[in-house]
């Protein structure tokens, strides 16, 4: 059972209150019509799935019902930090994920 810190409620709460919502920082293509099949498939289906640090979205579904991001190790399950949507503490991890 994970314990997750909601940056809005500013409280550490049990995982059961939250729903995982997949990889964070996936930018919706600005101009979907102009994407090739390759780019569109990448956007829809290809995720990083790292063995190690992962940035993912969580929803505080039984709490404030807001989305936020979590950086978590997918092997040890240790959570490095939670931060609100729109904030992007160490941009480097995000840059690598190029959907454009």
């Amino acid at each position: 059972m994970l314990q997750i810190y909601c940056p809005y409620c500013q409280e550490l709460r049990e995982e059961e209150e939250f729903s995982p919502s997949g990889e964070a920082h996936i930018a919706r293509p600005r101009d979907p019509e102009s994407l090739s099949d390759e780019q569109w498939g990448d956007y829809l289906f290809f995720r990083k799935n790292p063995r190690g640090l992962h940035r993912e979205m969580w929803h505080h579904s039984a709490g404030c019902r807001r989305y936020f991001n979590v950086e978590r190790d997918t092997v040890s399950y240790v959570i490095a930090r939670s931060y609100p949507i729109g904030e992007d503490p160490a941009g480097a991890m995000v840059e690598g994920h190029d959907h454009e």
């Binding site: 059972m1 994970l2 995982e15 059961e16 729903s19 995982p20 799935n49 063995r51 992962h54 993912e56 978590r72 997918t74 092997v75 040890s76 399950y77």
Partner: peptide
Amino acid sequence: DRYNGYGQRGSLH
């Protein structure tokens, strides 16, 4: 478990 994980263990709930 709906989160990604490689830990060969999941959550009790």
